[in-house]
């Protein structure tokens, strides 16, 4: 199955087979070594990559930019500042056509769901989804799966908790779908009732036949977990702010909770940035995996870019 990545769009994690993912992890392993060894690479020399962030982003954009540059590619692009509108002038479709003309691959983020798929229909060059609205964030899911594989040496048969906003959070959504591709995992979906996963995600889990439980209580399930993936719960999602104040404490991961309840080899992940979901006293415990996860962002995105370009060296 090698070579199936070449020329492909990366829109949703569901577009990839377990073989595709295995190929990706192996490639990321290779780049992780190269980064550590400080080996300069010219894999993507002569290629231009567009980073089109219609929605503000620091982390994802910088991680893609670093990945591109470490592989020797040049980068063009823009990041919309919060509140500004790129949409006033030309249509989104026209902007995509322009970028497609200038560059060999487009990475994009947009607040509209489906923006990446639409761009892929327009562009001749591959499109990589860096997050579309509340829907998909496939490269984050690749990084998350890679992190689990690195730290747990397997992606099968794990009890995986996903905590936070499972309804509107694209990282959580993509993570749920990604871990569900490994059907022997059991998912514990932990959220306030109004932030449970959407129907379309539920249907996919049912189709895949993966076991999942939905609960509002972290405490009830934390002792079962091998992996705990934490995401942010945004205040704005609650029509009544007092509802938010009521629940926010119960979704906070603390050192005390982990040391009294969790399995000793539980890993705690977070796509970052965090704003209080994980207390700082977890940082120097053995549970903490989120800084490693962030570090793996570059090698995994290097792997994505090199595979899509079909270049290896």
């Amino acid at each position: 199955m090698h070579g199936s990545w070449k020329g492909r769009d990366v829109i949703s994690i569901l577009d990839f087979s377990l073989d595709d993912l295995e190929e990706l992890y192996n490639r990321a392993d290779k780049y992780l070594e190269k980064i550590r060894a400080g080996t300069p690479l010219r894999t993507l020399e002569g290629l231009v990559i567009s980073l089109a962030f219609f929605e503000p982003s620091t982390r994802t954009r910088m991680s893609f930019e670093t990945a591109a540059k470490r592989l020797g590619a040049s980068v063009i692009g823009f990041t919309a500042a919060a509140g500004t509108s790129l949409e006033k002038g030309e249509s989104y479709a026209d902007t995509i056509r322009m970028l497609d003309g200038y560059s060999d691959l487009i990475v994009l983020r947009h607040k509209y769901e489906g923006a990446a798929r639409f761009a892929a229909e327009i562009a001749e060059h591959p499109v990589v989804n860096g997050g579309d609205g509340k829907q998909h964030h496939p490269t984050q899911a690749f990084i998350d799966l890679y992190t689990i594989r690195k730290l747990k040496q397997r992606l099968e048969g794990l009890n995986i908790g996903v905590l936070g906003d499972l309804r509107y959070g694209r990282a959580a959504n993509s993570f749920i779908l990604g871990t569900a591709l490994y059907r022997t995992n059991t998912l514990y979906l932990i959220s306030p009732s109004q932030l449970r996963m959407r129907d379309e995600t539920r249907i996919i889990l049912e189709d895949l036949g993966v076991r999942f439980y939905e609960t509002e209580s972290l405490e009830d399930v934390v002792s079962d977990l091998d992996v705990l993936y934490v995401t942010r719960i945004q205040k704005e999602r609650f029509p009544d702010p007092s509802e938010y104040e009521k629940v926010k404490g119960s979704y906070r991961v603390t050192r005390r909770l982990l040391e009294t309840r969790a399995k000793p080899d539980l890993i705690v992940m977070h796509p970052l940035p965090r704003v209080g979901e994980i207390s700082y006293d977890v940082d120097d415990t053995r549970y903490q995996a989120y800084f490693k996860q962030a570090y793996y962002g570059v090698p995994v995105r290097m792997a994505v870019l090199s595979l899509v370009f079909g270049r290896e060296r």
């Binding site: 249509s91 989104y92 769901e113 489906g114 798929r117 639409f118 379309e200 249907i203």
Partner: peptide, 26 residues
């Protein structure tokens, strides 16, 4: 003003349901 036509796939099952190709909404 975007030149994009809504497209849907039928969701398997007894009930009549369609899913948006772009955003996944059912």
């Amino acid at each position: 003003r975007e030149p994009v036509t809504p497209r849907f796939y039928r969701v398997r099952g007894k009930r009549l349901r369609y899913q948006c190709v772009y955003c996944g909404t059912i």
